Amino acid sequence: MPEQIPYGVATSIINRLASAALSEYGRINGVMDELERLKNTVESIRAVLLDADDKQEQSHAVQNWMTC
């Protein structure tokens, strides 16, 4: 399982960026593109955490990185 804190933070951020209230705020203030880019970046980070979790059993370097 991915390290709980970073994975949980990434998931929480994605959920908040996908909320209707934040979408409405972004639309009103003209920052929808920035919010979408931020969401994509956080989704990429979450994917890296998942990949690292899969690989940590095979690589001591990845295992060390995941526990730091």
Results as ranks from 00 to 15, higher is better:
Lys55His: 10
Trp65Cys: 11
Gly8Glu: 08
Arg27Ala: 10
Asp51Pro: 02
Gly30His: 02
Ile5Val: 15
Ile13Asp: 04
Val31Trp: 00
Ala47Leu: 08
Leu49Ile: 04
Thr41Met: 08
Met32Val: 10
Ala10Tyr: 02
Leu50Tyr: 14
Gln63Thr: 11
Asn15Lys: 12
Arg27Gln: 11
Val31Arg: 05
Ile13Lys: 03
Asn40Leu: 12
Leu38Ala: 04
Ala21Asn: 13
Glu24Gln: 13
Val31Asp: 03
Asp33Trp: 08
Pro2Gln: 05
Glu36Trp: 10
Gly30Lys: 01
Ile5Glu: 15
Thr41Tyr: 12
Ala10Lys: 01
Cys68Met: 09
His60Asp: 15
Val31Lys: 06
Ile14Gln: 00
Gln4Asn: 10
Ala47Glu: 07
Met66Arg: 13
Val62Lys: 04
Val31Met: 08
Ala18Lys: 12
Ala21Met: 07
Glu57Met: 10
Val42Gln: 01
Lys55Val: 07
Gln56Tyr: 00
Cys68Leu: 12
Glu43Arg: 04
Val9Ser: 04
Val31His: 01
Ile45Gly: 01
Met32Trp: 04
Pro6Phe: 04
Asn29Val: 06
Cys68Lys: 15
Leu38Asn: 06
Gln58Cys: 05
Asp53Met: 05
Glu36Lys: 14
Ile5Asn: 10
Thr41Ala: 07
Ser44Lys: 06
His60Val: 12
Glu43Cys: 00
Trp65His: 15
Ala10Arg: 02
Asn40Val: 07
Val48Gln: 13
Ser23Pro: 03
Thr11Pro: 07
Ser12Val: 02
Lys55Cys: 08
Ile13Met: 04
Val62Cys: 02
Glu24Leu: 13
Asp54His: 14
Ile28Asn: 10
Arg27Tyr: 05
Cys68Gly: 15
Ile45Asp: 00
Ala18Glu: 09
Leu50Phe: 07
Glu3Val: 06
Gly26Pro: 00
Ser59Arg: 11
Tyr25Ile: 04
Ser19Thr: 01
Leu17Arg: 04
Thr41Gly: 08
Met1Ala: 15
Gln56Asn: 01
Asp51Met: 10
Arg46Ser: 03
Gly8Trp: 05
Tyr25Phe: 11
Trp65Met: 09
Arg37Asn: 11
Trp65Phe: 15
Leu22Asn: 02
Ala18Gly: 06
Gln4Asp: 08
Arg46Leu: 03
Met1Asp: 13
Gly30Phe: 00
Trp65Gln: 11
Ala52Cys: 12
Glu43Val: 02
Asn15Pro: 01
His60Pro: 07
Glu34His: 09
Ser19Lys: 01
Asn40Met: 08
Thr67Lys: 14
Gln58Lys: 14
Asp53Ser: 14
Trp65Asp: 08
Glu34Pro: 06
Asp53Gly: 14
Glu36Ile: 12
Arg46Lys: 11
Asn15Asp: 12
Ile13Trp: 02
Leu17Ile: 01
Glu57Gly: 13
Ile14Met: 00
Gln4Tyr: 09
Arg27Phe: 05
Glu36Asn: 09
Gln4Ser: 12
Gln58Ile: 07
Asp33Lys: 12
Ala52Ser: 06
His60Tyr: 13
Ile45Gln: 06
Asn15Thr: 08
Pro2Ser: 14
Ser19Gly: 00
Ser44Val: 09
Tyr7Asp: 05
Glu34Arg: 09
Glu3Lys: 14
Asp53Leu: 00
Asp54Cys: 09
Asn64Val: 07
Leu17Gln: 07
Ile45Cys: 07
Ile5Thr: 15
Ile28Tyr: 03
